[in-house]
């Protein structure tokens, strides 16, 4: 079986790719996509630890279910926010969302 360190390395690579997207995308939907990538990498780590460290209770997989729940709620609210912003200022770019600037 593939050792745990390879799964963790894969999780690290995908997480860093998602972080790069969050830092550099202008499109707010692109930022949400990158956040989903980061959450996927985190649940990969949780599942890997659940398989390798302790298999009797499967706590890591249960945590991963909660991560998916929060990710689904976050995507729904985030996309609703983006749609509401698009209605008011006709743009989806994060650097255009500056109505709170003083």
């Amino acid at each position: 079986m593939t050792p745990l360190s390879q799964y963790l390395a894969l999780g690290a690579v995908i997480f860093v790719i998602g972080l790069f997207g969050v830092l550099t995308r202008r499109n707010a939907i692109g930022i949400l996509i990158s956040i989903e990538i980061m959450l996927g990498a985190v649940s990969l780590n949780l599942v890997a630890f659940s398989r390798f460290v302790e298999t009797t209770t499967l706590n890591g997989q249960v945590f991963s279910v909660f991560v998916m729940t929060v990710a689904a709620g976050e995507a729904a609210v985030g996309l609703a926010l983006i749609l509401a912003l698009y209605k008011s200022i006709k743009a989806v770019f994060a650097d255009k969302f500056n109505m709170l600037k003083w």
């Binding site: 963790l8 390395a9 997480f15 860093v16 972080l19 790069f20 830092l23 390798f52 009797t56």
Partner: peptide, 27 residues
């Protein structure tokens, strides 16, 4: 951003390589 992510990746990978991880626990 790319440099920051590269630094984070190098740090994470080095930690993953150095630490001693357990082998599969049970079936």
């Amino acid at each position: 951003g790319f440099l920051l992510c590269l630094a984070l990746l190098v740090g994470l990978i080095s930690v993953v390589r150095v630490a001693s991880w357990p082998s599969p626990a049970g079936g």
